[in-house]
Lab assay of single mutants.
Amino acid sequence: DHDVVPEDKFQETLHLKEKEGCPQAFHALLSWLLTQDSTAILDFWRVLFKDYNLERYGRLQPILDSFPKDVDLSQPRKGRKPPAVPKALVPPPRLPTKRKASEEARAAAPAALTPRGTASPGSQLKAKPPKKPESSAEQQRLPLGNGIQTMSASVQRAVAMSSGDVPGARGAVEGILIQQVFESGGSKKCIQVGGEFYTPSKFEDSGSGKNKARSSSGPKPLVRAKGAQGAAPGGGEARLGQQGSVPAPLALPSDPQLHQKNEDECAVCRDGGELICCDGCPRAFHLACLSPPLREIPSGTWRCSSCLQATVQEVQPRAEEPRPQEPPVETPLPPGLRSAGEEVRGPPGEPLAGMDTTLVYKHLPAPPSAAPLPGLDSSALHPLLCVGPEGQQNLAPGARCGVCGDGTDVLRCTHCAAAFHWRCHFPAGTSRPGTGLRCRSCSGDVTPAPVEGVLAPSPARLAPGPAKDDTASHEPALHRDDLESLLSEHTFDGILQWAIQSMARPAAPFPS
């Protein structure tokens, strides 16, 4: 592969990997390779389809078979030569091979799209000592099968071997295949498990690692696999990028399955594409389908809103127990993405979901129960707010008499603000006073009005108090039968009158 990737590009890729991570280095090298001529790309395919690569990765054979028959990708048995050289000459001794072996032994695996480039050397060096003999053996194999790289107009793939297949390693990572398949204008990513390549439709969760975000852009890794992070704060999961590491605690105790298979379609829109997988259930989501939507993949363990709600429900009964003089119970939860139609709101002032922060849900004790107040519409209280300059209440639009249902020339009671006709409430011909108009209920007259088809109010509507207090003497005590009587009149003013009279009014101040 030294004929494909020059030394300066190799060093530039290593520097970019240390600065921005393996995914960015892979993407940059792939983009550079696509700008080369067809001879360089053909050399790339020839390096990929060597015999030892085909033996190690069985899924490469179907890719090789898909090439046109007129494309010669065979390799000479006596060494490598550029395709432009007409004579089959043995190339001179390859010093770059020693360079590659020494550099890969030092860096474990470079971040390139060629056999030198995919593992994360920093994480491997940190986690190597417990498994040094086995990992050293794996390093000797890295130059042979560490990076199976493929690129063409139909298929483009980048393979990364790992030393996680050490025997006896619980939940060992089998390997990473960062794979971009450009077929019919689409893009897919796969993962390699035990020599087999699994596409998103049959993606397997190998051991402790999972394909957290099938994305090839942005600074985030394709698999949430930063070796420096180790395990999740809650004892979460091992990262795919942690090559040759000792077994780590796999999943939280509440995880239903340690080796679950995540779905390959969004649980909201039932469509495929780039998904984020939940650590607590097999569901996966688009970032845009979450509520609120996320802009980037959160670091650490992530769970959907259903799993978060289940966790909150487990903690909430203990938080609601009476604990005198104790601060509110704080339950730190990872930043969760909410699927459509589901929402768990945190306290005000918290950062938005999706940031690399930890939301704190506070379970406050329930407030003391209070008697429910009568629910009145805002339009129902409008007549009470229509007060004239002299303190006389004006008529609201649409006000109707509670007896006849007519809204023409209605009066407004100064005591309960109900609309009424003087002739309907006082049919006996009582003279109307000039000021202080009161309806039949507030004036103490319980004589029913002779209106055909309208039920008369119940005599129990009024329960006047002592006459010594004029204001308190007109406080009506309405009961269920009074409400039914008012409802039978089918008037809004009657219902409003009952609601206003049912509310307690402050006692009249004593004259000074």
Score class of each variant (00 low, 15 high):
261 K>L: 08
327 P>E: 13
434 G>R: 10
308 L>W: 14
353 A>Q: 06
319 A>Y: 08
470 D>C: 08
282 P>Q: 11
372 P>N: 13
356 D>C: 08
488 S>T: 11
367 P>H: 06
341 G>W: 15
455 L>Q: 07
475 E>K: 02
465 G>M: 13
445 D>C: 09
243 Q>A: 12
463 A>S: 10
427 P>C: 00
323 R>C: 11
509 P>W: 04
366 A>F: 15
469 D>A: 09
466 P>N: 03
374 P>T: 12
417 A>V: 13
343 E>G: 07
315 V>I: 11
370 A>Q: 09
383 P>D: 00
268 V>C: 11
365 P>F: 14
490 H>T: 14
403 V>T: 07
440 R>T: 11
489 E>T: 00
265 E>P: 06
428 A>K: 12
318 R>L: 10
264 D>A: 09
326 E>T: 09
442 C>N: 03
408 T>N: 07
268 V>A: 10
422 W>K: 05
355 M>Q: 03
304 C>H: 15
411 L>C: 15
503 M>C: 11
328 P>C: 13
288 A>K: 11
437 L>W: 14
475 E>T: 07
293 P>W: 11
332 P>I: 06
427 P>R: 07
347 P>S: 10
273 G>Q: 12
406 D>G: 09
241 G>I: 09
389 P>S: 07
291 S>W: 15
347 P>A: 05
353 A>L: 14
323 R>P: 08
413 C>K: 03
449 A>E: 13
484 E>L: 02
409 D>G: 11
319 A>C: 11
316 Q>G: 12
421 H>L: 01
275 L>D: 07
444 G>E: 03
476 P>K: 05
354 G>T: 13
244 G>M: 10
289 C>T: 13
478 L>W: 10
376 L>S: 13
447 T>V: 15
377 D>H: 12
407 G>Q: 12
286 H>A: 12
390 E>I: 11
413 C>D: 01
464 P>R: 06
244 G>C: 14
272 G>A: 04
495 I>P: 02
439 C>T: 01
500 I>W: 02
498 W>R: 01
347 P>T: 15
437 L>G: 06
244 G>K: 13
298 P>G: 11
255 D>Y: 13
342 E>N: 15
317 P>W: 10
460 A>H: 15
264 D>G: 08
348 P>A: 09
372 P>V: 13
505 R>M: 11
452 E>P: 13
324 P>E: 11
481 D>K: 01
402 G>K: 13
